[in-house]
């Protein structure tokens, strides 16, 4: 775990009730108030995103995220296994509707996500710079994330045409293979590039009609959790994307072992974690996708979480 994340467990109270006692100097950077008009900034409470709602973790635990200078920026929800299970329930419930939404509609909704992110660029640049990125690097990451979503929005009604087939069987049958989403996909998003990495992870999953439960970058979860607000205002149906913040060490096993998850994606190079994911995935023959290095967006990432369905019908009178 990264050094600049301090953890505490609280049992009696939700995480943010006592935040006044914590030093929050860095947070004000996100919403500056001019010195001439001394006004106390209204600080955002970072919460989970489950089933289209923003609950706190049921566990009441938090972890502090600090900026590059070690100042506390936010108390993030430290999601529990129960939060994860609830997110899976939401994702499963959303699957039927989202997977049968037309490709055109999914494309429009994804494009809408890009529009909303564009409109909130400044907020994300602010979060990224707070965490130590230069303004230029932050702006680049945000625009890359927007473009990534537009790219996958365009794929929703095209990958099927590229990767499906009509199969010339020898018998008198019409036979075709189409792609269908694998189902509920759990993903442990990359630690690096907390916005672009997260968006690159989610976009191909939902472009293909799957629903997702994602764990935000542990080192820098701010952007991923704020991205929930973008999704929320983009007509993405509740439950299609569920976002948790928390500890990889604690949640990885659950992401891989849950019996109602159909595929698990792990981003990172920790060989012990990779082995754990691969082993636990066998509980219900999950598809396992390991991404050690970030990959440039391409339709094969949509294909990673697609199933091929082949249909036969006799030809005759």
């Amino acid at each position: 775990m990264d050094k600049n994340i301090k953890t505490e467990e609280r049992f009696a109270q939700p995480a943010n009730v006592e935040t006044a006692s914590a030093p929050k100097t860095a947070k004000s950077k996100l919403r500056t108030s001019p010195a001439s008009a001394p006004r106390l900034g209204v600080e955002k409470t970072y919460k989970l995103y489950i089933n289209g709602k923003f609950p706190r973790t049921e566990s009441g635990r938090y972890f502090a995220v600090t900026d590059a200078k070690g100042r506390i920026v936010a108390n993030m929800c430290r999601a529990s296994r129960k939060d994860f299970r609830e997110a899976v329930v939401a994702a499963r419930a959303a699957f039927s509707g989202w997977s049968s939404a037309s490709a055109y509609l999914r494309g429009q909704i994804l494009y809408r996500v890009a529009e909303m992110l564009e409109g909130r660029s400044e907020q994300f640049v602010g979060e990224l710079t707070t965490m130590g990125l230069s303004k230029r690097a932050a702006a680049q990451e945000v625009t890359a994330a927007i473009d990534c979503i537009v790219y996958y929005a365009g794929w929703t009604d095209k990958y099927q045409q590229i990767f499906s087939s009509v199969n010339p069987v020898a018998s008198s049958h019409f036979n075709f293979s189409i792609l269908e989403p694998t189902g509920v996909v759990s993903t442990i998003a990359p630690q690096e590039k907390c916005l672009l990495g997260f968006v690159s992870e989610i976009a191909p999953i939902i472009a293909g009609g799957n629903t997702a439960v994602a764990l935000a970058s542990e080192e820098n979860p701010l952007c991923a959790v704020s991205f929930a607000e973008v999704l929320h205002s983009s007509d993405v149906p509740p439950g299609v994307v569920n976002i948790l913040s928390g500890f990889r060490d604690e949640l990885t096993e659950q992401f891989a072992s849950h019996m109602d998850v159909n595929a698990v994606i792990y981003n990172g190079e920790d060989m012990n974690a990779i082995k754990l994911v691969q082993e636990q995935a066998a509980n219900n023959i999950k598809r396992v996708i390991i991404r050690k290095k970030p990959a440039a967006p391409d339709p094969y990432q949509i294909m990673d979480v697609q199933e091929t369905k082949t249909t036969w019908h006799p030809i005759g009178g």
Partner: peptide
């Protein structure tokens, strides 16, 4: 048929 993909969902 050899031209026809075969394989399962889920378990």
């Amino acid at each position: 048929d050899p031209t026809s993909p075969f394989g399962g969902y889920k378990e």
